[in-house]
Design a protein around this nucleic acid. Sequence first.
RNA 1: GGGCCGUUAGCUCAGCUGGUAGAGCAAGUGACUCUUAAUCACUGGGUCGGAGGUUCGAUCCCUCCACGGCUCACCA
Length: 542
Amino acid sequence: MRQTRRAGPTSSAPAPAKGRNSVSQAESWPHQEAQRILDRTKNLDQEIILQTGFGPSGFPHIGTFGEITRTTFVRLALTDLGAKNTRLIVFSDDMDGLRKVPLTFPAAMNEHLGKPLNEIPDPFGCCESYSGHMNGKLLEMLGRLGFDHEFRSSAQQYQSGVFNNGLKQILDRVDKVCEIILPTMSDQKRQGWSPFLPICESCRRLSTTRVTAYHPERCSVSYTCDGSVGAVNGCGHTGEGSILDGHAKVGWKTDWALRWYVYGVTYEMYGKDLIESANLSGKIVRALGGTPPVGYFFELFLDETGAKISKSVGKGVTVDSWLRYAPVESLALFMYRNPRRAKKLFLGAIPQYVDELLEEIEAHYGAAVPPGQRSTFGYLRPDAPASDPFVRGLRYGTLAELAGTVGTTDIEILSQYVKRGIGWPGGDDGAMKALISQAALYHREVLLPTKVAYTPAGEAERTAIGTLIDYLAQPNDPEEIQTRIFALAKESGMEAKDLFKSLYLVITGQERGPRLGGFITVLGRDKVREILTGALQAAGSR
RNA sequence: GGGCCGUUAGCUCAGCUGGUAGAGCAAGUGACUCUUAAUCACUGGGUCGGAGGUUCGAUCCCUCCACGGCUCACCA
């Protein structure tokens, strides 16, 4: 009789909110962005290059995920609009000099300050270099999430000579580049500034070298290694080095411009903190004779308190922690929602986004998507099968509460409850079970710790619990236990429902739960006695 | 200070090309009393930051103001 529930008027499935989840997404921001790009290229056959950047001086963070996800949305929209040749480049700045050792990393790394990241040993000892380790982490994430992309390592690109021509251009026009950058710098820093950062042939650092002369005819620069980074000083070496083949790189904004120029990047997103940098890089590309990409800036993520999430410190939510409690599509949905609005990214937001994801799935499979258009879920799961293998008609919060009520994270047990309770909502068992177990973990690790432990304060209540503890010392039939609890309530002058409520609160932290007799048996008498005793002690010691 | 972005119910967020606002959670009330498996029903709450303007009509367009954020202070 419950089977029809999903489709019936009393269905617990959330009714699709009007306007919120739509099948036709003609005005979705990725679509608009794609249109902006095509307005520029005007040609569906032209190669369109979308780029995102990664700084491997630390682990890939949620911002990296967001950038790649959002860029992928735009790429999908481009395809929908008929673009035939799109590529996504994920560029890793692994030739940057190490400026600061991350907090939790070995202090021994300090000796490598100023060296290119790809020349610093892996502190974890498993990869060929520090940045190699971080690149590996990034690729692992991208692989797991199924992002189609082309990975580029800055160091490899420089060394391979791909950038040589661009570097020559910069050297030839170094005055113009300086004209662009210098006015934005303080007077003190202007003198001696150069877009080039040669690697010192003696100590292998590039953050400590200072260019003293340009030699465009030889494609080289003269430099002195007398700068400092952190507590490390340059080695004092003076020499001349090629700017080609990875012997030097160019600094930040010039570097960005170089990539745009050499690859012919069509589109790139960045956080709004980089707007100014992007403007300057754009000017540099123009000075080189290139065209800056179509750009799009997005708002920064905030933590629960509204403060900006720091990239360097591990504050805030990581991709891994979100994925521990929710499917990746829910995080993708977070990224899909208005990127121009600062949003709070914290674990407490998970139920909302999972529920909205379920609604989007409902909408996606509930109505035919017109050709050439894409549902929201179609962005989140471009490879979504035609028939619906996904979970729907449920609420994440319900599942989490169920886990709390039943007091277990065991998938098989919880699955039985779900099947009997509301009927299996259809779809794939694996997806369903994954969601159940995620919700259960969420309850145990996120929800539960915020709840204040209930302490039985009433005299009658405590007497009853005390008696129950003794009673449970001996094995008894579940029905007998059940009956005994009612008797206990009567003996101590309590309403039965109050005693039940109290026991549920103590055992599961919630006001309701399964039939206690059987429940106690399932949990184990000893375990329950332990919990009850603990509660009495907590109450007594107040 | 200049530039840019934002400001929708207590909280987190939706609101397509302008037609007197929605969801979830939270809150409140009621129902189920040897039964109570994640419950059901109902309700409240917003002059859509403020003030003008355009319009028959604006949360959605324009201007100004307030508040918050980012950026101009070179770190790739």
